[in-house]
Amino acid sequence: MVQSSETVIDTSLTERATAVINLIQEWVPAELHYPKVAVICGSGLHHLADALNISPRAEIPFSDLPYFPLPTVDGHIGKLVFGYFGTVPTVCMVGRIHFYEGNPFDVSVFPIRVFSAMGISTLLVTNAAGGLNSEYKVGDLMVLNDHINFPGLAGWHPLKGPNDPLVGPRFPALSDAYDLELRQKLFESAKTLKLGRAIHEGVYVFVSGPTYETRAESRMLKMLGADAVGMSTVPEIIIARHSGMKVLAISLITNAVVTQPTPKASDGPANLSAGKATHEEVIEAARQAAEDMRALVMDVISGL
């Protein structure tokens, strides 16, 4: 008898996650064995981990963990940092693993499976994103309240393949992907902290990268209803929700996406480089926003 794809389970996923957790528990203090929250630090936002209490604290490089590939992108260090935000045990993933680096989705989202297996109930994701919404300025923050999974709609989906019903449902709904209570808490924290930058709510569109979008692609994404665009986050969100975790996601707008049509040759001289996105400006914008992001993330998590 031939089994259906619904019942063909990759048991090695649980085995791999268990192997990683066993190593973590050998290397970190016992009081850090069971974090409540995981934070993914996006491009240039590795300083978020600096807000963890000084003690107890432990760091583990990805290179010491099996099944964790090393990040290859500037601004992504590649380590797990365990500690406390206030009284809340937390693990910070300093640097992420991107699909465009050549990793299959099951590899790039594997840390989220480990976090779920550790019993973590809340995932807080940060990223650097390009602003499509004309009201967004460089340095603004956007709280995700929805997303468009562009590669996923074309078949490149992190849940493609056999499903383990013990891990999550075959057809998870994502209409409630971004937790309302956590979003409300973030805006309450921002009001208390009196941050000097605008905070929006909006739609993030995930594209595979690694090229930045063309002008025509950017106009298309804007027409589809996206407020910001980036090359990460959505696969992590999908796996977190598949595993039953609550999710809060924050984009730092690091560049204004160019949507004006390309000048025609008949128009005469034009500066095609005006507004062109670079990774250096992404890192610089993240550096300037680091303190506000750190204060906001710490306040949100400390109140959980």
Rank of each mutant, 00 (worst) to 15 (best):
T7E: 14
D50L: 09
L252E: 06
N271P: 01
L248W: 07
A129I: 05
T262R: 04
N22M: 07
T262W: 10
L52K: 04
T126N: 00
M298K: 15
D10W: 04
G119M: 03
G78W: 12
E236W: 05
V138M: 11
I21N: 02
E26R: 00
A129V: 10
M245I: 09
G86H: 01
P158K: 00
A228P: 01
I238L: 11
G102A: 08
A277I: 14
T126C: 03
L80K: 07
V37S: 06
S232F: 11
A128W: 07
V39Q: 06
V257T: 14
R57G: 13
S232P: 05
L186E: 12
P151I: 15
H279Y: 09
E101C: 03
E188N: 05
L182T: 05
A117T: 03
A216P: 01
P35N: 15
P71Q: 04
A290H: 07
G152E: 09
A256R: 10
V229D: 09
V203I: 13
L32M: 04
V109L: 02
F99E: 14
V125T: 10
G196W: 10
G244R: 02
D267G: 08
V39P: 01
G161H: 02
T192F: 09
T233M: 05
R294M: 14
L32Q: 00
F82T: 00
T254C: 08
K246P: 14
T214P: 02
P104N: 15
S243R: 09
P169K: 07
F105E: 14
M293R: 06
A270N: 10
G168A: 03
F187P: 13
S63I: 13
G42Q: 10
G202M: 00
L252Y: 06
P104S: 14
V205L: 10
E201Y: 10
E188V: 10
R197V: 12
T262G: 04
Y178F: 03
V91Y: 03
S175F: 14
F99A: 11
H33F: 03
Y34D: 14
D64Y: 06
K246M: 13
H47I: 14
E201C: 08
V20N: 04
G131V: 09
L144V: 09
P151T: 10
R197A: 10
L23I: 15
Q25A: 09
F68K: 02
A265C: 00
S189M: 12
Y136M: 01
G303I: 11
L132P: 01
T233E: 12
H46N: 11
M231A: 12
I199Q: 06
G303Q: 13
